[in-house]
Structure formats: structure tokens, C-alpha cells
Design a protein around this nucleic acid. Structure first.
Lengths: 101, 101
DNA sequence: CATATATTTCGGTATTTGCCTAAATACCGT
DNA sequence: ACGGTATTTAGGCAAATACCGAAATATATG
């Protein structure tokens, strides 16, 4: 959870996740969409990987990154539920200290 | 959105929001629940306020902070929708580039 | 006005972050 | 094994962050 929030704090990393939303991409393919140095992007990949938000798969000489949507989902949902925030905008009141389903 | 994610990146600030979940509290009341200096907490309040995640209301000599849940809600929902993440865990597929809800 | 209380602002330090270039590693084709 | 492409790791720098104690501000009260 901590690592996920730290990872999401950077706009470049959020953009990377957005890019991977539609399909998996190689490190270079992603890097081409940014004006940053490849080494810089590589650092961002490492952080996203440490947060388990993306998976890396070596495919020959390239490395394919894939969005791990379920982890993003879990983290967001867990956080939202802690505040009783529902999809429809409703707030579910809980007795203080009670955990969300 | 940027400010919200930056604000949420720090665990102390997330704890502050959690504290305000049940009821509004004065700065001092909040500070008493941390081992950090009041000045440090005051800085965190400023960041949360800049992100519009909390509202401040002067009440005599104290300042009452209140969680601005709707802003947290909006930010989280907007982000989740961009990834097609639904409350039930389902993923809604969209044509690339198409905006959510 | 003087004092007390609540909170913020200021000035400083240590750590972390984001970026870069250069060098290292991994894999491929010849 | 050699040269080329893809990617990461290493080293370094500037800016941002998180923290603190001290000083400043605002409010209430005697």
C-alpha cells in the first residue's frame, strides 16, 4: 500500500500505467513516448515493479511490461473502502474502528 | 489531481485523513496523536489544504480541520475510471482514448 | 496591556527523489 | 567471439521533502 501510493505520486509513472492500460509494451516502446532518458524510465519501471503495479517479462532482447491491474484495483478499493467511499458516490457509515468489507 | 496524489503519498497525511474520517478535529487534537512536532503537522495540514482534501475553520483560538470527502472521492473515482476499474472489481473495456463515465 | 494558549511561519539540516551521462549487462545475428 | 541493439546499474547533482526548534501571529482572558 505504501509503495503503491508512492509509485502513484509521480505523474510520469501514472502516465506509464495509463500507457499500459490498453496493451503490454517493451521498455523501449514506452520510453519512446517520453522525452526522458531511457535510464530515467528504467528507474520508474523499477519503482512500479517494486509496488507490483507492473510485471516484467523478458522476451528475447526486450523486456515487456504489463499492467498488473488487480494490484492497482486492490489498493484503490482498500483505500476507498477505508473511507466508506462507494462507486455511486454514496458513503457507507461504519462504527469507528470497524473494518470495511 | 496532481496535488491530491502527492498529498496521499505521505503516510502521515493519510493517517490525518483517516483521523478526520469520523469527526472534525482541531490542529492540536490531531497533533496529540502523533509524535511529530506541531510545526511538522502544520506543514502537512497546509499540503492537505492545498489539495483541497481538508477544510480549515477558525473557531476561537483553535482551528478545526474537516475532511473534504467529496474531493477525495472525485479524485479516486476519476483515476479508477480512467483504468476502467469498477467497485465490484469488474473492468469495463473502452476503445483507446475514450473517456470514462 | 500583559500573559497564556493555539497555530503557523521561518531558517536550517538530513534524506529522498528525479534527472542525467557513462558504463555494465543481456541477448541476438553473423 | 564480435558488433549491434535493448535495458539496467552506477555515480553524481539539483531540487523537493520531511523534520526540528525558535520566532511570529492570532485569539482569548485577567
Amino acid at each position: 500500500m505504501e509503495k503503491v501510493f508512492k509509485a502513484l505520486a509521480d505523474p510520469t509513472r501514472r502516465r506509464i500505467l495509463q500507457l499500459l492500460r490498453t496493451r503490454a509494451m517493451s521498455a523501449g516502446e514506452i520510453a519512446d513516448r517520453f522525452t526522458l532518458a531511457k535510464a530515467t524510465l528504467s528507474g520508474h519501471f523499477a519503482i512500479l515493479r517494486a509496488a507490483d503495479l507492473i510485471d516484467a517479462e523478458r522476451r528475447g532482447s526486450t523486456i515487456i511490461y504489463r499492467l498488473n491491474l488487480s494490484v492497482l484495483q486492490e489498493a484503490l478499493l482498500e483505500f476507498a473502502e477505508a473511507f466508506g467511499i462507494g462507486r455511486d458516490g454514496s458513503r457507507i457509515r461504519r462504527r469507528s474502528g470497524e473494518a470495511a468489507g
